[in-house]
Amino acid sequence: MNPETDTTTALKSFLSFKLADKTFALEVEKVIEIIEVPKITSIPKAPAHMKGVINLRGQVLPLIDTCVKFGLPEIEPDLNTCIIVIDLLLKEKTIRFGAMVSQVLEVLEKEEGQIHASPSIEANYNLEFVKGIIKENEDFIVVLDIDKTFSVEEVKLMKDTNEKKTKASKTK
């Protein structure tokens, strides 16, 4: 063990990205690749944040509009829009999906100790999805807990609430 590798293991990399005008980050080891937005095939009757499916080199990849997922307005794809391809381990099964974000920024390297538990991140975001906070140039960036954010159960939950909403609006 030379000291060089020691320092790198202590470092953790994060990919920062933008949803609308807010900055978030996720652990880089979850990211498979970042791609541009191809033609999207929407799936009818799916919850609003389930944008549809895309063709990733012959693989059908589900696509999530991360903005809608966090209650922000839907992303209108432009030049900056990117899809982060993520592998998620769920019940011993790997699910690959694309998370559409407004803009991908950079990879930040932080020491383990620099990740703070979120003290009070107001009630703007559901705290359950937050893994921690990192500080970059005096700005605080929220690190998302990917496993929780995009779990299938979570998707189902969203769907149920959506349905309730639509049912409620129908009864009106």
Partner: peptide, 26 residues
């Protein structure tokens, strides 16, 4: 191709296929 767990509630979609132009059809 399967459309992944995320869409298991859209049961009327039994799968997807990739068309000649690279787009996905359900």
């Amino acid at each position: 191709k399967s459309v992944s767990e995320y869409y298991k509630h859209q049961e009327f979609v039994s799968g997807a296929t990739i068309l000649g132009d690279g787009s996905v059809a359900l």
